[in-house]
């Protein structure tokens, strides 16, 4: 009996070292970060309502399986910044506004933490989601055709219709337009930009090539 108790006690003590150090510490310290006042407003900026809905589509589609959202620290590697995926390393405060932090573990596609600064044309995003291999030859991203629907052209071509010419082009008189989910998702992706700086970002900035 005593041995069982002492065993339980040791298990619990050792187990709790990591539980306190990682979980409770993160919750108390990182979980209570406050936003900072930057020169151009509160940082990190709030997401728009549409972008918040888009983050849900991002989660539902499992984008996180192949795309990370983290720029690594310069003392570990320069490659993320050399690839123009960001201008500075990510810090914990960057994820303050995220409902779920989509850090990601595997890069089968480029990092997305600054995709909104890299690519600014919504139509490009729609086109890429619809037929990735046509827009970026060699891409292994699957098509997200279920986020779009085909409709008859009513008078003029819709502003959001995808300029399809390749194998997936709709029949004449029809156009492919994004659903609301696709519009939300693209609004979210466009809002992914960390083009501001935060106090804790290290002073070492990458030299411009």
């Amino acid at each position: 009996m005593n041995r069982l108790r002492s065993l339980f006690l040791i298990i619990i003590l050792l187990f709790f070292s990591s539980w306190l150090g990682v979980v409770v510490y993160s919750y108390l310290e990182l979980g209570h970060f406050k936003s900072v006042a930057g020169s151009d407003g509160i940082l990190p900026p709030y997401y728009s309502g549409q972008a918040i809905l888009g983050a849900r589509v991002y989660a539902a589609s499992g984008c996180m399986t192949c795309h990370t959202q983290q720029i690594r620290q310069l003392d570990v590697t320069h490659s993320d910044i050399d690839r123009k995926w960001g201008t500075r390393p990510s810090v914990a405060l960057d994820y303050l506004r995220d409902q779920t932090a989509f850090l990601g573990k595997r890069r089968m596609g480029p990092d997305l933490s600054n995709v909104g600064s890299r690519l600014t044309d919504p139509i490009w995003y729609y086109h890429h989601l619809y037929e990735p291999d046509q827009v970026t030859p060699g891409s292994i991203m699957p098509s997200y055709r279920y986020l779009f629907h085909m409709q008859k052209i009513q008078g003029e071509l819709s502003a959001q219709a995808i300029p399809l010419t390749g194998p997936h082009a709709p029949p004449p008189g029809y156009e492919v337009v994004p659903t609301k989910d696709a519009q939300d998702l693209v609004a979210y992706l466009l809002s992914l930009k960390h083009d501001y700086t935060l106090p804790e970002v290290s002073a070492e900035t990458p030299s411009a090539p």
Binding site: E29, V76, T77, P89, P199, E200
Partner: peptide, 16 residues
């Protein structure tokens, strides 16, 4: 500290 991200790891990364 919770706000220090860049530990002095230059020796590891082969001279950043």
């Amino acid at each position: 500290k919770s706000n220090v991200y860049n530990a002095e790891l230059v020796a590891w990364s082969g001279g950043g």
